[in-house]
């Protein structure tokens, strides 16, 4: 039910301009020009890369269910949310921030879980225990984190405790989310609950519990990012935010642009198709605040296209191309990302 609510929210934002496949790519965090542009154009960044392991089959079953229940309909491969679907979106606004974390939130909670477990054992004098996190890089991270601390283990446990209470109390979480988070932590004679056990105790489906958990991680990480008075948990979150939004290949193109090469030159230098370099430019426009739009489009062109967008209530490229035949698809894509506002 909760997953369905996410899908309906996304389809609604795409208001009949994308196929079901487009949403699938966003949820999986596909790094292609089209997907990156979709999340930008339709305000879907919060949902980007929420479920990197979502299977085609699992997704297809959900879509079939939405259709069977009359919540969406599909025409010419394009998804429309029905009136019944809109009434079913009653869920409070989602507070995901998938764009910024892209799986980094899972890294954070693994570090947190191992840190809490280690402190719980060591403060009671037990140095031998089976680490609840088996991944070597998580173990190394936590070991390094603990080595850097200068206070006693007792004091450290106290401080981490205080920070966690503060974060869970003050961040805008539901009580359900606070409970779920705390029950994924392990310590002496207090092992974490499995998803099934939490779901049973809370009388809620497993997928809902997992989705609320994921959302709570984003809320917690956003909270930590904005506050300075929780240095310990903050240092467990280091590197969990995406620092470079560009794909490796786009990053290389970006450097060449900076050095003053034209996109035709870059294409021949890198031995890639021009359309690929154009994709890189679109990716950059969506992610780099200082993108040099003026090198590709004029202020008049931007104004003209946005007048069409407002009048026709669509961002579909094919429709816009019919009205502005003198512009290339590449230019149209840039203009959509640029947005309506033109600085003089």
């Amino acid at each position: 039910m909760v997953f369905i609510s996410i899908l309906l929210t996304m389809f609604q934002r795409l208001h009949g301009e994308r196929s079901a496949q487009g949403v699938y790519h966003i949820l999986r965090g596909k790094r292609s020009g089209q997907t990156l542009q979709d999340v930008e154009n339709y305000q879907l960044k919060p949902f980007y890369s929420l479920f990197p392991n979502l299977s085609t089959d699992g997704y297809r079953r959900q879509i079939e269910r939405l259709i069977a229940e009359g919540l969406i309909r599909i025409e010419n491969q394009v998804v429309y949310v029905t009136d019944k679907g809109r009434k079913n979106m009653l869920h409070a606004p989602w507070r995901f921030n998938g764009w910024e974390y892209r799986g980094g939130e899972r890294e954070f909670v693994k570090r947190l879980a191992l840190t809490v477990q280690t402190l719980s054992y060591i403060r009671t004098g037990q140095t031998m225990f089976a680490p609840i996190q088996k991944e070597l890089h998580i173990q190394q991270f936590v070991k390094e984190f603990l080595r850097r601390q200068t206070v006693s283990v007792d004091e450290l446990a106290k401080r981490v405790h205080k920070e966690l209470v503060q974060i869970l109390s003050e961040a805008n979480l539901t009580d359900l989310q606070r409970t779920i988070l705390s029950y994924r932590l392990t310590g002496v004679q207090l092992t974490a609950y499995t998803w099934e056990q939490i779901a049973e105790a809370l009388n809620s489906p497993v997928t809902s519990v997992q989705i609320y958990f994921l959302e709570s991680l984003h809320i917690v990480l956003d909270f930590i990012e904005e506050h300075e008075d929780m240095p310990l948990v903050k240092s467990l979150a280091v590197g969990c935010r995406v620092e470079n939004y560009l794909t490796q290949s786009a990053e290389r193109s970006r450097k060449l642009v900076q050095q003053g090469y034209s996109i035709e030159q870059i294409a021949s230098l890198r031995n890639l198709k021009l359309s690929t370099i154009e994709d890189h430019m679109v990716e950059m426009a969506a992610n780099v605040k200082t993108f040099p739009y003026e090198e590709f489009v004029t202020a008049e062109q931007i104004q003209k296209v946005w007048q069409q967008i407002d009048r026709l209530q669509t961002k579909r490229l094919r429709v816009l191309k019919e009205r502005c035949a003198e512009l290339s698809y590449f230019q149209l894509r840039l203009i959509i990302i640029h947005g309506k506002r033109v600085d003089s």
Partner: peptide
Amino acid sequence: STKLDWKERLHQLLG
């Protein structure tokens, strides 16, 4: 027992 309390749990874990 199925009574879940996050503050109590954090206290048990970290003192």
